[in-house]
């Protein structure tokens, strides 16, 4: 019991860092996923090439390597040292954003062509097509994979402990070093990650339900989606 009362504040503090990086990374990843994903559906060949180069590069490089590069190598080029939390958000956001972009592109492509044709018959502008018909319908399809990517990003955030950010993993490692209670130290960290993940998943399920309701679909039976295929490479 001493272990819990002594260490809990540390873990909570660490969890806040993990939460901060996860939320920040997700925000960046979301913006990238949407813009690069939409770019990948345009008719312009240049736009599609830019999107696919982005996806291949940032999906290809491991987030840990990207983060190390930003933290250790980039200052040598730019002379500007990134704050480690910021470097982590950037690396994770860029990496998970690439997976998200593929998700967005796939979901847009999955909207039936007939819907697109109906917008032409009603003379929508291209922007209006996207905003009021294509994206609202693609949204429901994107959400399950987005949920998985959030979990991948949260797990990936553990690597920041390697550049000395005191996140949940770092705290676990520190507590192990100080107390010598190896089992308890890591188990506590794992359980907190698990709980965080369940909270994220809960909110995503709510979002999915409301998205499906807005399309006039009955709330789907708790059908579990396969976790993000090639799930964000665990962001490492």
């Amino acid at each position: 019991m001493d272990f819990i009362t002594d260490s809990l504040p540390l873990y909570i503090n660490g969890a806040l860092y993990t939460l901060l990086i996860t939320v920040g990374g997700c925000a960046l990843a979301f913006v990238i996923a949407m813009s690069v994903g939409i770019l990948g559906t345009l008719r312009s060949r240049v736009a599609r090439a830019v999107a696919s180069i982005y996806v291949e590069v940032f999906r290809g490089v491991a987030a840990l390597v990207l983060m190390f590069w930003m933290f250790y190598a980039m200052p040598l080029v730019t002379g500007y040292l990134l704050d480690p939390v910021f470097a982590a958000i950037l690396a994770l956001g860029l990496n998970v954003g690439a997976y998200g972009a593929e998700n967005v592109r796939g979901a847009i492509k999955a909207v039936p062509a007939a819907q697109y044709e109906a917008t032409i018959a009603l003379n929508f502008t291209p922007a209006q097509r996207l905003r009021s018909v294509i994206l609202p319908q693609a949204w429901a399809q994107m959400l399950p994979t987005f949920g998985n990517l959030i979990i991948e990003l949260m797990k990936g955030s553990a690597v920041v402990s390697l550049i000395a950010v005191s996140d949940l993993t770092f705290v676990g490692d520190q507590v192990r070093a100080f107390t010598g209670q190896t089992l308890a130290a890591y188990t506590a960290a794992l359980v907190m990650y698990f709980l965080l993940a369940q909270v994220f998943l809960y909110f995503m399920r709510m979002a999915e339900r409301s998205a499906n309701r807005r399309l006039g679909r009955e709330p789907l039976k708790a059908k579990k989606s396969t976790p993000a295929v090639a799930g964000a490479g665990g962001a490492a």
């Binding site: 007939a114 819907q115 044709e117 109906a118 018959a121 009603l122 003379n123 929508f124 502008t125 209006q128 009021s132 018909v133 609202p136 319908q137 807005r214 399309l215 006039g216 679909r217």
Partner: peptide, 29 residues
């Protein structure tokens, strides 16, 4: 602008109510 079309498969927008299906384009285009 001069041309309208009705499709075999109706192609209503499932993300909109009946009202918005009908009013969306008159309002915005």
């Amino acid at each position: 602008k001069k041309i309208g079309m009705v499709f075999q498969q109706f192609n209503l927008f499932p993300n909109m109510t009946v009202r918005r299906n009908i009013t969306e384009s008159p309002i915005h285009t």
